[in-house]
Design a protein around this nucleic acid. Structure first.
Lengths: 145, 145
DNA sequence: TTCCATGCAAACACTTTGCACCGTG
DNA sequence: CACGGTGCAAAGTGTTTGCATGGAA
């Protein structure tokens, strides 16, 4: 038995989704989503910098508020890749989780498949359903053993 | 092949360890370690409150500095059980990792054994060694499905 | 008597909030 | 033209740092 979470909206028209949920489509929201997709894994600050570089000036608070909305819509997710600020990443390239090297800070994106045994075990033992997309596993990468 | 990390010092005389490493034994350090052991999983702020309640006044910065030292000595560990402050826990009751329910915030401590398949897989595929004690798995507990 | 540890206060990093104005739908 | 979104500035939380004093060894 695998956890079937809400599947990623088929990359389809998120603009439509926005409006259907009563949200409005603004240039800022477009810019911020584009920046997250372009950057891979980025902190709110990095997103802000990227958007500003790209074009117009956007405010910090708008970045925070927008990332929240985008996550609620399932377009982006956040993970904690450091003890500092969280990073946001697009979900369009498929769900994955992260390995972070404690030594060199390298981030490796991993296919959720390897979690199957763990998910089954936790479901059986504790009735617990894992939120795969949010998972970050810290440790040491091959180069830093 | 299992990851053999530095085993927990046999609950032995950490006071001696302290000094051997050039650290000094102060009342604050005793109080703070005791508080962490008593509290289970506590944020720096909660540790501070507990210590103050217990007896003397201790400063916030001392709490932070002390937790850092205690972690370096392998007496406590920290994990991120929320998007806010980290929590510290004693290591004397054995290494474990945490499940956190996204809905009700419940924290479940789990034996590292269930991670074996994952550890092996990540070691084989990416040469990655998991830091088990720092791992936090978010999801939904049995009551909140 | 020597340094490490502490207290204090200020600075920092990150995030949130209140409110007036703006612009999408 | 209504109502949600944005910018701005201020405040909130959590953490770190510099420096003078205090106390363990």
């Amino acid at each position: 038995m695998r956890s079937q979470r809400a599947s990623t909206p088929p990359a389809a028209d998120w603009r439509t989704q926005l409006r259907e949920r009563g949200y409005r489509l603004t240039p800022q929201r477009e810019l911020i989503l584009a920046a997250v997709e372009r950057l891979g894994h980025a902190t709110p600050d990095e997103v802000l910098a990227a958007v500003r570089e790209q074009s117009s000036a956007v405010n910090v608070s708008t970045v925070y508020r927008t990332l929240e909305v985008l996550e609620e819509l399932g377009l982006v997710r956040h993970a904690h890749l450091s003890d500092r600020a969280p990073t946001y990443h697009s979900v369009t390239d498929g769900e994955h989780f992260h390995l972070v090297c404690r030594n060199c800070r390298r981030v490796i994106s991993v296919d959720p498949g390897v979690l199957n045994p763990l998910q089954d075990e936790l479901a059986a033992d504790h009735g617990f359903t894992v939120d795969v997309g949010h998972l970050t596993v810290f440790g040491r990468c091959s180069e830093c053993q």
